[in-house]
């Protein structure tokens, strides 16, 4: 009703006066949000002057106008580097796997956990599964390497014991296993933590909906399908859109710590490349150029995802 009247007004009056009228009506909403827009402007947008470094041979300490300007040289260098494309391929491969499994499994886990009736068991399970989030990647990578070792690693012992393998297999030495190992380790470490958001969304659903469904004779599966899933759909979609935006920004720590010289072709990712060839060498300009590339791709992905979901599901983040 509210919306209809507003549309009518829009037609009649000029945009500015509409704005002013709305502004007066909504001054509280403006007051509650605009200061924080200013806030992010200062803390997030202002430092973007640093992007000019990508077009210079930046040397710290020299004034802005004293820097040597080199135009697009760093970008050209970047796009001519085979290693960059290798890193891009690996990044995309691992982030798609992450999206496919690392994103969906926590949702399934949250739903399964929600179906547990014993409150104590539920709480314990939830607490235990979120603990690995606090164990650093150094430690987790060490554990994974040891588990996959051919020298008494539990996975090989099991596979050989069950007769699936004749002799221990060096999973860590074989590049084609690497992406999978990273994905599974990530799920192992972060599943419980990532499930929290969905647990909270489920917790916010109206209990009356379940009561009504029960009265209608819906069993557990139907309740999950018709109430839980649609109920947390907005959260799922929003997290999905944000994750799509992050497709090429997946960090480098786990890949670096799980890799070894034999699988480097599959392990190097963009952020590690940026570190090794940018900041690591004191080449701030090159590092910044990579950063800009990342940001531009991310924002394009975000806008695409946002547009698509807005159109087909009426859910968006902006």
């Amino acid at each position: 009703m509210d919306l209809v009247t507003k549309k009518d007004i829009t037609k009649k009056k000029s945009r500015l006066s509409v704005f002013w009228k709305g502004f007066k009506n909504q001054k509280m909403l403006y007051l509650m949000s605009i200061p924080f827009v200013a806030w992010v402007f200062v803390f997030n947008y202002l430092p973007v002057w640093g992007w000019t470094m990508a077009f210079q041979n930046y040397i710290p300490g020299k004034a802005f106008w004293e820097q040597e300007w080199v135009g697009l040289q760093h970008f050209i260098q970047l796009f001519q580097d085979e290693r960059f494309f290798l890193a891009l391929r690996n990044t995309l491969a691992m982030s798609f796997l992450g999206l496919l499994f690392g994103f969906t499994i926590p949702i399934i886990f949250a739903i399964l956990l929600n179906e547990v009736r014993n409150s104590f068991f539920k709480r314990v399970t939830q607490t235990v599964t979120y603990l690995p989030h606090f164990v650093s990647w150094v430690v987790v990578a060490g554990i994974v390497t040891k588990m996959l070792s051919t020298d008494g690693g539990i996975i090989n012992d099991l596979l050989v014991g069950m007769g699936i393998l004749d002799q221990p297999y060096q999973f860590m030495a074989d590049g084609k296993w690497f992406w999978g190992i990273v994905t599974v380790s990530d799920i192992w470490k972060e599943m419980g933590w990532n499930a929290i958001i969905f647990l909270a969304a489920i917790a916010g659903l109206d209990p009356q909906l379940y009561e009504a469904a029960k009265v209608d004779g819906a069993n557990r599966f139907r309740q999950i399908w018709h109430i839980t899933l649609p109920g947390i759909r907005p959260t799922i979609l929003v997290v999905l859109i944000l994750n799509i935006g992050h497709l090429i920004q997946i960090g480098f720590e786990k890949q670096m710590l799980l890799s070894n010289p034999l699988v480097i072709e599959y392990a190097e990712v963009l952020e590690l490349y940026a570190l090794n060839y940018g900041i690591g060498l004191g080449q701030f300009s090159y590092g910044t150029a990579i950063g800009i590339f990342n940001s531009v791709v991310s924002i394009v992905l975000l806008l695409l995802a946002n547009g698509i979901f807005k159109r087909y599901s009426n859910q968006s983040v902006m």
């Binding site: 041979n57 040397i59 290693r83 010289p261 034999l262 480097i264 072709e265 190097e268 090794n276 060839y277 690591g280 060498l281 004191g282 080449q283 300009s285």
Partner: peptide, 23 residues
């Protein structure tokens, strides 16, 4: 020297070496 090509080539050579000598 910072920002020199030498630096970058060294890093590349090291990356290649770490990969191919074990191979």
């Amino acid at each position: 020297p910072a920002n020199s090509e030498l630096q970058t080539i060294n890093q590349r050579a090291l990356d290649i070496t770490k990969q191919l000598v074990p191979k």
